[in-house]
Design a protein around this nucleic acid. Structure first.
Lengths: 185, 185
DNA sequence: GGATATGGTATCGAGTCAATACCATTGGAG
DNA sequence: CTCCAATGGTATTGACTCGATACCATATCC
């Protein structure tokens, strides 16, 4: 029988495996994490500050990583209309093309090789553990927009949603992205 | 409902949380992983080569990390009787004293806060995923000695076990440690 | 309109990591 | 028994990560 200590060791091992996969195609783990985040985050969250909160690092570190990605032509910065201090981040064509080559695909394949009841079960367990660990460090959830308590579906007509917190309209596609401000409904 | 893609995102997030916890007490994540490995590995596996295989890194990298730990007085090297090329690693008193301050304790607490059926379930899922991911990269399991097909229980009397592969006697305590050579029974 | 908060960047030092080169010892094969 | 390839480690280099600290511009609040 497996005891709790062994499970912790396995979680540690899994974390190492994920990190190791992050060296695909000459990029570094932190760079891949930034790329994946930018591919999934909505326009309110695609900023250096958003990425900093997501990764749980300091802003100086994240600024460095973003500069290296910008130098490599994978990420571009544009001015944020409405706040001249802030910066909007986005993937370039080249950056987007790199996404399918992500080393996480290896983990994903291993995951998909598991029988179905186990997959669902693992999802539940990991979700609960992440929630619990995030709560312990008072970190944000970065959940999906449409699962948020500030989300108003079809508030402006079919497919025209609305964020009550940021007072902004939302397209269908955006409702599927992750958001800095998301709070469970 | 959660789909498979979301589970992968959560696994990625969990890996980042584990890595972030690795900065406790001025050490780095890789240094903590080395310390934990040395605390759990048996005498056949407590070598730079064993740690290299466990972490899935190159030997040069691991050599660097071990040197920094030796400079800090947390790890000590002794000659390996029987092979003058090899080195035996061990934790110093100071290194052993540091173990309970491990940042993984935070993750462990979050894990223990989960209700029981979920804990067991998560353990099963993570075990299966790690096994599957390791197989994909043909990595070793580093399982517990007494679960190995080379393990002969009480072969030399009660509590006097034996490794058929390395042809070495094993004490009770060693049978509970992880081993480089372990293969599921 | 000035204090303070916020979003980012610049710089430094220690560490990580792969790659390459290198050095001993070991263990075969002739 | 002597080469010689394989094995276990270390040394060095260069790009990147990361926290800490300092700093700058724009926003916001009184």
């Amino acid at each position: 029988m497996r005891n709790d200590g062994e499970t912790i060791e396995l979680i540690e091992r899994l974390a190492r495996l994920v990190t190791n996969e992050g060296h695909a195609h000459g990029l570094k783990p932190a760079q891949w994490e930034a790329l994946r985040y930018l591919a999934r985050a909505n326009r309110f969250s695609r900023t250096p500050g958003g990425l900093t909160a997501y990764l749980g690092l300091t802003k100086g570190t994240v600024s460095q990583t973003l500069m290296s990605l910008e130098r490599a032509g994978l990420v571009e910065k544009t001015a944020n209309p409405g706040d001249a201090r802030s910066v909007q981040l986005g993937l370039t064509e080249k950056g987007r093309a790199l996404l399918p080559l992500d080393g996480m695909a290896t983990i994903q394949k291993a995951f998909e090789a598991l029988p179905q009841p186990l997959r669902a079960t693992l999802g539940d367990g990991v979700a609960a553990l992440v929630t619990s660990a995030l709560a312990a460090r008072s970190g944000r959830a970065f959940g999906i927009c449409h699962d948020c308590r500030h989300f108003a579906a079809d508030a402006r007509g079919p497919g025209q949603h609305y964020c009550r917190l940021l007072k902004q309209p939302l397209e269908d596609a955006e409702a599927e992205q992750i958001c800095q401000e998301q709070e469970a409904a």
